[in-house]
Amino acid sequence: MTKSIITVGIVGGAGYTAGELLRLLLHHPQATIGAVVSTTQAGLPVHSVHDDLLGDTDLTFASALRGDEDVVFLCLGHGNSREWLLKTDLPARTKIIDLSNDFRLAADRQAGGREFVYGLPELNRAAIRAADSVANPGCFASAIQLALLPLAEAGLLREAVHVSAITGSTGAGRGLAETTGYTWRTGNISTYKTFTHQHLGEIGETLVGLQPDFGQPIRFIPYRGNFTRGIFASVYTTCELSVLEVQNLYSDYYRDAPFTLVSEKEIHLKQVVNTNKCLLHVAKHDDQVLITSTLDNLLKGASGQAVQNMNLMFGLEETMGLGIKASYF
């Protein structure tokens, strides 16, 4: 059922993902923002933290939700969303979209009397429309899964999958650490969590769900980049199809996906930064199919996808409030 105006609450309102949600929802034609909850910033203007919103809103941070929210976005640190849900008396009618990793794996999807649906629209659009609780995918997980869904659905993943992907500093969150500081990042690059990244679990579950006999390793090397936002992933594996057959497979799979687009030309990061798009490019090198995938880690990899899920959950046009321009120059 379509609701005319959706009252939104945001919990964990001081972080990067909350800031992106505010920027999107302040201009969403069917949403109004109720409470922006932050226990550390309660009583202060929202623009005192998200200072680009000066002049856009007079909201102040709250210490608690109002209680009349139609949907609550949880922008808490990993491990905190489940704890918040279990100790909060949230009305059953209130929908939840969680941006942490607390409910992404199948074994973790039940909590507080709720059943979370994995919120990758290109995979679970129908289930998201019917859901009252959604677990938003991880940023790397979104880019890598979108690169692999057509192959998995066709049962074509027969060998190990190799992934090399780089992300900007905002992927590490707002908290200060040596590897997020300007002096460390500038002119620098490094790997981290090689072959052990936390998003591998949700990627593996999705691929097995589409191709039950998939049992090959996903060898993932993540990189920290010396830029602020965006993910660029190179994904390759053995495939017997011709390049034309693979291109047609991808074009058919994403024919009705408004934000995931298959490019005939090679792609680059500036095409997607500040948008909710994921761009894909497919090529063949000998027996290897190479899929490059790029998206904005804070939008299609987080807050933009969360708004996309909200639109689906409330029967709105999927693209509503997400027609934003790439920061190309």
Rank of each mutant, 00 (worst) to 15 (best):
K87T: 15
L25K: 00
I10W: 02
T196D: 11
F103K: 02
G230C: 06
G15Q: 04
N188E: 09
T191N: 08
A143Q: 00
V36P: 00
G304D: 11
A31D: 04
T260V: 15
Q288D: 12
A143C: 05
L280K: 09
W184D: 12
A107K: 15
S164E: 15
I218F: 01
K87A: 13
S263A: 14
Q41A: 02
T319C: 07
L156G: 10
Q198H: 14
H285Q: 15
S293L: 11
G187F: 08
A64C: 06
G171I: 04
T183Q: 14
G15V: 02
S169I: 14
G215T: 10
G181R: 15
F195A: 11
D102Y: 01
V46K: 01
A141W: 03
E159V: 02
G43A: 07
L207R: 10
T206D: 04
T292S: 11
A131L: 00
R174E: 11
G13I: 05
V71M: 04
G168F: 11
Q247H: 08
G230K: 01
N101D: 10
Q288M: 14
T194A: 13
Q211P: 09
Q110T: 11
C75T: 15
R114P: 00
Q145H: 02
V71E: 06
L22P: 05
L261M: 08
Y223M: 09
R185C: 05
K284H: 13
G9Q: 10
L249P: 03
L316W: 08
K325V: 12
K300E: 05
D252G: 03
Q41R: 09
